[in-house]
């Protein structure tokens, strides 16, 4: 009977274990990851933040740039499209949190909750675009350096040395003033900034891919691949790249956090996302106004906390992924 046979293997854990006796590496990683409470918490937080930032604005009535006014006689709130009444109304600036504006309004009379959500969109988007650019460049160049060795290796690695020795913040200042002088509209500025950060940030990924491929080249399965005489393309895309993936995913997750931190710092210093568009970094910028810093904590505390929470969540997830993919690293 089937039941008798399964009895000695009575697994405590559900779904996976009941149907198979051995776990695939993917299942093992997933199980170890799900066992890490902090990592699961981080992933949940990130999911909620992503939904709030990307989906919620679709249902939220106010835009991030819309300014609100108060009618002088009736005290009613007026919106930007009520052009006739606005001419006599006053700007609803620095409003305390209310039912209409849950986080209040800023100096320009804009709704803070809306700006918080659009700002989050920018922060997450910047993180993902930079990491994608970084991974593309890093895998291609690092892979070429590791696989071919010789001259390509020397040229690429010297380029990596040069780029990683350039002081990062001063370089960003220079690039930012370049952008201002080129009259790039604030709407597109952030995209240029993203690509520039990506162009600088790829060196870490390239170093790692190169090191992994160098060690993989000595393994038996690569010798077998050489002996069978499969195509170079297959060797690279079927055997080498998949083996670098675990490390790459961990690195990408941790980098997402650092890129968001970097973007917010740049926006805070005024070299990232510019007015009238919101980003969590440039929303904290209002602390430079002493009155706002002292009396309007609601304007800068939430965006700052949002950055902290999202970066923290990325760090938890990245750490959990590293423990899950490489158990020897557990607890490091």
């Amino acid at each position: 009977m089937e039941k008798d046979y399964l009895e000695p293997f009575s697994f405590q854990t559900e779904d996976i274990a009941e149907v198979q006796l051995f776990l695939t590496p993917g299942q093992m990683i997933l199980r170890r990851f799900m066992g890490n409470k902090l990592a699961v918490l981080g992933a949940t937080v990130l999911f909620i933040v992503a939904v709030l930032c990307f989906a919620a604005p679709l249902f939220y009535p106010y835009n991030q740039t819309e300014q609100f006014y108060t009618d002088k006689t009736t005290g009613e709130e007026l919106r930007t499209f009520q052009t006739e009444q606005i001419s006599t109304a006053v700007l609803k600036s620095l409003e305390k949190p209310s039912l209409n504006h849950l986080l209040g309004t800023n100096k320009m009379g804009q709704d803070m909750l809306s700006r918080l959500m659009y700002g989050g969109r920018i922060s997450l988007l910047v993180g993902f675009v930079v990491v994608i650019v970084e991974l593309l460049l890093g895998v291609i160049l690092g892979g070429a350096a590791g696989y071919y060795g010789g001259l390509p290796n020397a040229v690429i690695m010297r380029l990596v040395d040069i780029i990683s020795s350039i002081p990062f913040m001063p370089l960003m200042f220079i690039l930012a003033s370049l952008e201002i002088n080129l009259n790039i509209s604030p709407k597109y500025k952030i995209y240029y900034t993203m690509f520039m950060i990506g162009l600088i940030w790829w060196t870490g990924a390239a170093r790692m891919v190169r090191a992994t491929i160098l060690s993989l080249r000595e393994t038996e399965f690569m010798q077998a691949a050489d002996a069978v005489g499969i195509k170079t393309r297959n060797k690279i895309f079927r055997h080498l790249i998949p083996n670098t993936l675990p490390n790459l995913i961990v690195m990408a997750t941790l980098d997402l956090g650092s890129v968001i931190l970097m973007e917010s710092t740049m926006s805070y210093l005024g070299v990232g996302v510019g007015a009238p568009y919101a980003s969590w970094g440039n929303m904290v910028q209002v602390v430079n106004d002493n009155v706002i810093m002292r009396d309007y904590v609601n304007l800068w505390l939430t965006p700052g906390l949002c950055i902290l929470v999202v970066v923290l969540a990325f760090n938890f997830v990245g750490d959990g992924l590293r423990d899950a993919t490489d158990p020897r690293m557990k607890g490091r």
Binding site: G257, S264, G281, V287, M293, R294, I307, L308, N315
Partner: peptide
């Protein structure tokens, strides 16, 4: 450690200024 590594420096500075500085 994780909180320290994840908090933006400018935000921490603002918090500390607000707490220990004027206001």
């Amino acid at each position: 450690v994780f909180i320290g590594l994840s908090i933006p420096g400018f935000f921490l500075a603002a918090l500390m200024k607000r707490l220990f500085g004027f206001g």
